[in-house]
């Protein structure tokens, strides 16, 4: 399964509040509150679709973290939340 962005990142209104971000999504009219990692997930997926593993790898390199199962679980939860908000979609490879 891989994840892809549903939104044109350039259409989002993003305000930086010292490393925390408010993001207005014009299509839904919703405002989201993200930390730096939350925004980085959207930026990575805006470049190209990615699997959870690839995403965790890129995030751990960017934030100099050691990826483990707990980290993957947290990123998965974030992706599921983004999916519910219409920001990303999950696609299984055989569909």
């Amino acid at each position: 399964m891989y994840w892809l962005s549903n939104v044109d990142l350039s259409s989002l209104k993003i305000e930086n509040w010292d490393g925390e971000y408010t993001v207005f999504q014009p299509e839904s009219g919703k405002t989201h509150f993200l930390n730096e990692m939350g925004l980085k997930i959207l930026l990575i997926l805006d470049q190209s679709p990615a699997t959870l593993g690839t995403l965790c790898q890129e995030l751990s390199e960017y934030f100099t973290l050691l990826p483990d199962a707990k980290f993957s679980g947290q990123i998965m939860k974030t992706l599921q939340r983004y999916e519910a908000l219409g920001l990303v979609s999950s696609v299984t490879e055989n569909t």
Binding site: K13, D18, F24
Partner: peptide
């Protein structure tokens, strides 16, 4: 923190969602 003030104000406004992007810009 300003981020917290933003969230509190946006959720406190009666018509934030109605005004959409205009409200986002105004609260910011």
């Amino acid at each position: 923190p300003q981020s917290e003030a933003f969230l509190l104000l946006a959720s406190n406004a009666f018509n934030y969602e109605v005004l959409g992007e205009t409200a986002f810009g105004a609260v910011t």
